[in-house]
Nucleic acid binder design. Structure first.
Length: 269
DNA sequence: ATGGCTGATTATATCAGA
């Protein structure tokens, strides 16, 4: 049997939090770590520090100050690709393939736009961008590029699609990340592509599941007003390989933490 | 009580996050 463990983590500045990345990799040893919000240019990415930890294969798509995604891996990465959804010049996607036995598994790492404050696309261009991004992503998931491939979509989707993906469904219905227009779009992509929502695959629908807790709570753990913004979806072809998931809640309590925690999926081939 | 915070920037206030 071959085991593959993949983690997604919105790191909120990879340079600032490099010590946390090192601790996480040492203790959890995923094969592949997908990062979002790296917040640095490619030339500023801490390549050598990560390589020293045994993760020698690194694909990055960065930009100055904001956004930015990366895939770091212990196993070779093939066919690295970066897509520019919505033609904004944003670094919000990077893809690479890993080989398991005789199968090529395609990984797509996403940082979907947050969408700003107002859930009204006519007055808020950031929310309009988020909705357009979802529409483009939907089209792309139906394209030939994905047809018939073993695929894993991961990342910070910035949407908590289901009632128990937020601390209060009622209070958040008008809050960007949980409004019906965006959760409907995400659920349509999920359904149309026959994707497996790996976190929910292992967790009953009525059980609360969060991957993000705001910095603004006086005591994040006590308030526990979380949202499930980070996701791992697999193609149906990988359904039988899904073994377990892990949401590393304790990472939210680390010193100078990201507001997102690492989310991992283990697959057995 | 969703913003009370956090991070990056040719900074000392502004933008972005969500």
């Amino acid at each position: 049997m071959v085991r593959l463990k993949i983690t997604t983590w919105n790191i909120n500045s990879v340079r600032l939090r490099m010590p946390l990345v090192a601790n996480f990799l040492a203790a959890n040893a995923p094969d592949v770590l997908c990062l979002q919000e790296t917040k640095c240019r490619d030339a500023e990415f801490p390549l050598s520090e990560i390589r020293k930890l045994g993760y020698e294969h690194i694909a990055i798509n960065g930009q100055k100050g904001y956004h930015g995604v990366a895939i770091v891996s212990r196993v070779p990465l093939e066919d690295v690709d970066r897509k520019g959804f919505c033609d904004m010049g944003d670094a919000r996607h990077i893809a690479a393939s890993v080989r398991v036995n005789d199968r090529s598994i395609r990984l797509h790492n996403f940082y979907i736009p947050a969408g700003g404050d107002e859930a009204k696309p006519e007055i808020n261009p950031k929310f309009a961008h988020k909705l357009s991004f979802l529409d483009e992503m939907h089209e792309w998931t139906r394209s030939d590029e994905l047809a018939g491939r073993d695929t894993i979509l991961v990342g910070d989707f910035n949407i908590a699609p289901y009632e128990h993906d937020v601390w209060s469904h009622k209070s958040l219905l008008s809050v960007v990340s949980h409004t019906p227009v965006e959760t409907d779009k995400l659920k349509l992509i999920l359904k149309d592509g026959d994707w497996v929502d790996a976190l929910r695959h292992f967790t009953p629908a009525d059980e609360k599941l969060y991957t993000w807790w705001s910095y603004r709570a006086a005591d994040w753990a006590k308030a526990n007003k979380g949202r499930r913004l980070d996701h791992i979806w697999t193609s149906a072809s990988l359904g039988s390989t899904l073994s377990s998931i892990d949401i590393l809640r304790e990472a939210r309590g680390w010193e100078r933490p990201s507001d997102h925690v690492p989310v991992s999926l283990t697959l057995d081939f």
